[in-house]
């Protein structure tokens, strides 16, 4: 009835096209508005000021490297929530999510595209934050581990935050009190991931005897969390997005 029905492309190549389209759209929108990276970057900068207050009475004998990893991941966790919330609010705003659901798209494709987009923005903010943090707090401290340790744990930890966070943010944008609900859901769920990531990051920062073992133990925790929780999030996303 309608003019010219095109040949049906194979399901997999269509999914790949859709995945790229969603990701590209998120990146184009972000490059245009710079909303997420600016707000997240500014937020993490403000956290640095708060850290200065927290550390102001610790005295010169105190080595901030001991708690540097914890402070960093804390900043990442809270900035990530800001970005996650924004990323899903975009979809909700004009009912775009509804239009997305009407397209012949497998729900996991939406999940992975949104999660990867969030991961990219989170990593950008992390890469911007770390030098500032090091400049402000770690001057003269030195870096103990191998150079690849920090990027490894950063990426693995961010995958978990972005993956689980995308699932939770998809729920929280549909509630009253969006950002508050996201915080309440996110922080306890992230606990094991952050604990392991901080342990690995601390080993990387301090170096020394046994630090490689501690790093891999922490990485094992991060990787285990990523695999299990991402599988769960992937399986559950369809229910969340259809509700």
């Amino acid at each position: 009835m309608a003019a010219g029905t095109q040949a049906r492309p194979s399901a997999r190549s269509l999914s790949w096209r859709q995945f790229k389209a969603i990701l590209r759209k998120d990146i184009v929108m972000e490059l245009r508005t710079k909303e997420m990276v600016t707000s997240m970057g500014l937020y993490s900068l403000l956290t640095m000021v708060v850290y200065q207050i927290a550390l102001s009475q610790s005295g010169s004998a105190f080595d901030p490297r001991q708690i540097a990893a914890g402070l960093l991941w804390l900043a990442f966790l809270f900035t990530s929530m800001l970005g996650l919330n924004r990323s899903l609010v975009h979809e909700q705003d004009q009912g775009c999510l509804e239009a997305l659901l009407l397209a012949p798209v497998d729900r996991p494709v939406i999940f992975f595209a949104k999660a990867i987009g969030n991961l990219v923005f989170l990593l950008i903010v992390e890469v911007l934050t770390i030098p500032v943090f090091a400049f402000l707090f770690l001057q003269g401290g030195g870096y103990g581990g191998a150079w690849w340790m920090i990027p490894t744990v950063l990426t693995a930890g961010s995958i978990g935050i972005a993956g689980v966070g995308t699932l939770l943010a998809t729920m929280s944008v549909n509630t009253n009190g969006k950002d508050f609900v996201l915080t309440v859901l996110m922080v306890p769920l992230m606990y094991p991931l952050l604990l392991a990531a901080v342990s690995a990051t601390t080993a990387a920062v301090l170096g020394g005897d046994g630090s490689v073992d501690q790093f891999w133990a922490g990485m094992g925790g991060v990787a285990g969390y990523d695999v299990i929780m991402l599988l769960a999030a992937y399986a559950l996303y369809e229910f969340v997005i259809g509700a």
Binding site: Y191, P192, L195, A196, G221, G224, Y225
Partner: peptide
Amino acid sequence: DAPISFFITRL
């Protein structure tokens, strides 16, 4: 999440 928490805390 709860058992993962337990397991990782044991690190």
